[in-house]
Structure formats: structure tokens, C-alpha cells
Design a protein around this nucleic acid. Structure first.
Lengths: 224, 224
DNA sequence: AAATATTTTGAAAGGACGATGAAAAATGCC
DNA sequence: GGCATTTTTCATCGTCCTTTCAAAATATTT
């Protein structure tokens, strides 16, 4: 479950956000000011930070600036109506969203969800539409794979696995790494599961199975 | 550098967009209402217009209609959820994108970038008044669907869902994405709701249900 | 060449997922 | 307010997918 760091000097606000967030199943942590937030981020990774601007000790945007030196945690800024928006948005860091106080907790939660879903990858604009290797074509947006023009019936796992291999083409990937990245960190199962899926993927790819190379004692890689 | 015309009666919104846009290196200009926007467009060419719908003096789509008489500037519409959503799509002008308020500035900028890059809507055919796939005809203006010439009785949700699928045809859409885009970011409900509406839509589409493809483990897409 | 390590393959069980129908809840209309 | 329509929730069923496991095949080492 995603972990949210809530930073606000008003205990009331923190409580409200916390309650709603936990009801949604998120884990929460709190900080009273920017300084505390920075320290907490040093020690731990959060999935998203909800940060007020006006705070004693260290204000919200200075805090974000500091945190962003080492991490790329998404941030949603809170600001009181009438506060200086110019300052906020002229700020060199890109925050992911902003919410004006007083806000509805439901709305804030919706935004948190939206930001989390969007994914916080440093550059998500790099999204190729189609990748092809000889007659093997992967349509990423349509989640479709064709072999010499004929649609291949890949199962979800096969597709995910292929996509991950291709995304990391030329790179040796251990079974552990594949399990972690394709299956998810919460998968507790047999290493050999990967083998089976590689087998099925190969059979789905027909002659283009040649791109999937076994690295004995290591794992697999996509080599084109 | 591309020039953006930002049209909104709320100064706050204008500022937010302006700051983000300028940070990205765009030039910006502002107008407080539709009337002002029309006049500014007479005097100068902009590369893209971000236009609110609800405004005093002259509303957003009347303004776009007027501007479009002489220019073909791409437009991104802003609208409050629930407000003008339906009308927007029934409207004869083709806007290039729409963003529902409250929006994240980062997302808006991403959309601006996208529109500028492609210079047209995700699927150009949607700009037309009628879109058809074999015997399935969607009359965007009249918000009407006919099957082999016979009017189909789609419920509002069915229509919205179909329209969104068509607008993004060929693109894999998760249930979450569909809920967010068709239902709204503030919909707190079951994922399975999508399934049910897909079911009903399919039954409404008769033989053309074939265009709606299930992507197991993923979601759905419109494939024609 | 034999022994060992590792991968490939096949098959079977269990689980996950989507389709569907029915009922409840919400919405809109008169 | 009451009725009809639409939307949402929920549980069931069948199918497809995933995982496990063991045997066979292949590669590596001794």
C-alpha cells in the first residue's frame, strides 16, 4: 500500500487527511513542518507527499526543493486561498498538483490517487507507440503483439514479460529481478515460474523466439 | 517558442497555467472572457488556446466557434465536471482536448505539449460530425448512434463510454482509466461497474459488439 | 564419460478474471 | 410523491491463465 507523508502545521488538517487516507487503505506519516518532512524523507521513501506551503521553521516549497535533491517523490501542494500563487507556481520545481484550502478531503484523495496512478517516473513522456524487431511488432498503446503482421494471442503475463524484456533489451535479467519487476515485489513463489512463462512466450513468438536468450546460471535477456 | 492564449475568468487559474507554461518556455497571453479572446485572436496568431467554458460576456464554445471562422488554432477546453461535458461533445466544433476542472497543471501542460506536437486530436475522425465503422454510425453532433441505419437506444453512460472508447480507438484502456475519464475522477465505486456497462453497451451494439475487445488482465479497447 | 548443475518441457490443479443476470439504489420525469 | 429508467452493486459460473512439480533434455564440470 502506498505511503503518504502529510506535512502541515495544523494538527486538524493532518488528522482529516490521515483519516481519509487510511480509510482508503493508505499508510500515512505526519510531519509538522518542512524541516521535519525533509528529515523523514531522508530516512524513508514515501510514495507521495501532501505538503502545506505556509509552515514554521521551513516552508513547503523550500522543503520540496530540498527533498527533490535526492528523491523524485511526487508532491501535492496545499495552499490557503489568497496566498501568493505567483510565488508558488514560479517555483522551479514541478509539483504534481495543488489543492486550495479549504479543500474537500474526498477531492484531495482523488487527486492523490490520480497522481499515484500517473506514475512518478522522471520522464513519462517517453512512451513509444510501436517497437519492432524484424517481423515482431509490439504495439504498446494497444497492448498488441503481431508476428509477421498476424496478431499473436499473448496472455497478460506473456505480454508483461515480453514488454519488460524488450524495455531492457540487451540487459541480463535474473529470475529474481524479473519476478520483482513483472510479477511484483509481493510475489512469493517459485523461481521456476519464470521459466515456464519464458517457455510459453517463446512458443507464442514462433521464429522470433530467437530474441529471447538464456543466460545459464543467470537468467534471460532480450537480444535483437 | 509556441504562444499560448489562456482564457479564463478566474485570475487564479490563469496564473497557474501561465506560470507552468512559462516555466516550460512557452509564451503566454491572457484573456478574461470569450469576447476578449476573440478580439485577441483577430490581432494575433496563437499556437494553442486553453479555454474555459463558463465565462461572462461570451462563453467558451461560442468564442471558439467565432474564432474558428477565420483560424484553425487548436483548442483545449476547460470545464467543470458535470457542467458542460455533454454539451461539449455535442458541439459542432472539434476541440482538440478537454480537461476537467479541477485539473493538475502538470497534466494540462502535458496535454498542451501533446496537442502541439501532433497538431490535432487523438483521433481526427472524432472531429467529424459522424464517425462510422461498417454499419455502426456515431453522430457526435446529435449524440446519436445508429446500427445499420436503425437508431440504437443508448443510455447516456453507454454513449459516453462508447464515445470515449472510440475517441481512443486502438488504445488499451484500464478500468481505472475508464472510470476516471468517463465517470470522473471523483467516482468512488466498484471497478466492476465498467464491466456491466461494457456488457450493456455490447448488447446495444448487436453484431458490432465485435469492436469492443476485452484485454484480459488489463481492460478494454475499441478495435476497428 | 560420468556426474552435476541448470534449463526446458509437459501436465495437472488451483486460482484469477471477466461475463452475466438479478436486485438494489439512484436519478430523472410527470 | 410516485413511476420509469438508468446506474451501480453483488454473487455466480465458466473459462482461461498461472503456478507448481517432476521428468527429460541440455549444458558444464570433474
Amino acid at each position: 500500500m502506498p505511503k503518504i507523508l502529510i506535512v502541515d502545521d495544523e494538527k486538524m488538517i493532518r488528522n482529516v487527511v490521515k483519516e481519509y487516507a487510511e480509510f482508503e487503505g493508505y499508510e500515512t506519516a505526519e510531519a509538522e513542518n518542512g524541516m521535519e518532512a525533509v528529515e523523514m524523507c531522508r530516512k524513508e521513501d514515501y510514495d507521495i507527499i501532501v505538503m502545506d506551503i505556509m509552515m514554521p521553521r521551513l516552508d513547503g516549497y523550500s522543503a520540496v526543493k530540498e527533498i527533490r535533491k535526492t528523491k523524485h517523490t511526487p508532491v501535492i501542494m496545499l495552499s490557503a486561498r489568497g496566498e501568493e500563487y505567483d510565488k508558488l507556481f514560479g517555483f522551479e520545481i514541478g509539483v504534481d498538483d495543488y489543492v486550495v484550502k479549504p479543500f474537500s478531503p474526498k477531492e484531495l484523495l482523488a487527486r492523490i490517487k490520480a497522481v499515484l496512478k500517473r506514475g512518478s517516473s522522471p520522464d513519462d513522456s517517453v512512451k513509444m507507440e510501436k517497437i519492432s524487431f524484424e517481423g515482431l511488432e509490439i504495439n504498446v498503446t494497444g497492448r498488441e503483439v503481431t508476428i509477421d503482421g498476424v496478431p499473436a494471442q499473448l496472455t497478460p503475463k506473456e505480454y508483461d514479460l515480453l514488454f519488460y524484456l524488450v524495455k531492457n533489451k540487451g540487459i541480463a535479467l535474473s529470475r529474481e529481478k524479473l519476478l520483482e519487476e513483472v510479477w511484483g515485489y509481493d510475489f512469493y513463489g517459485d523461481d521456476r515460474t519464470v521459466d515456464t512463462h519464458i517457455k510459453m512466450l517463446r512458443s507464442s513468438l514462433g521464429e522470433y523466439r530467437k530474441f529471447i536468450v538464456t543466460l545459464r546460471g543467470m537468467g534471460y535477456k532480450f537480444d535483437a
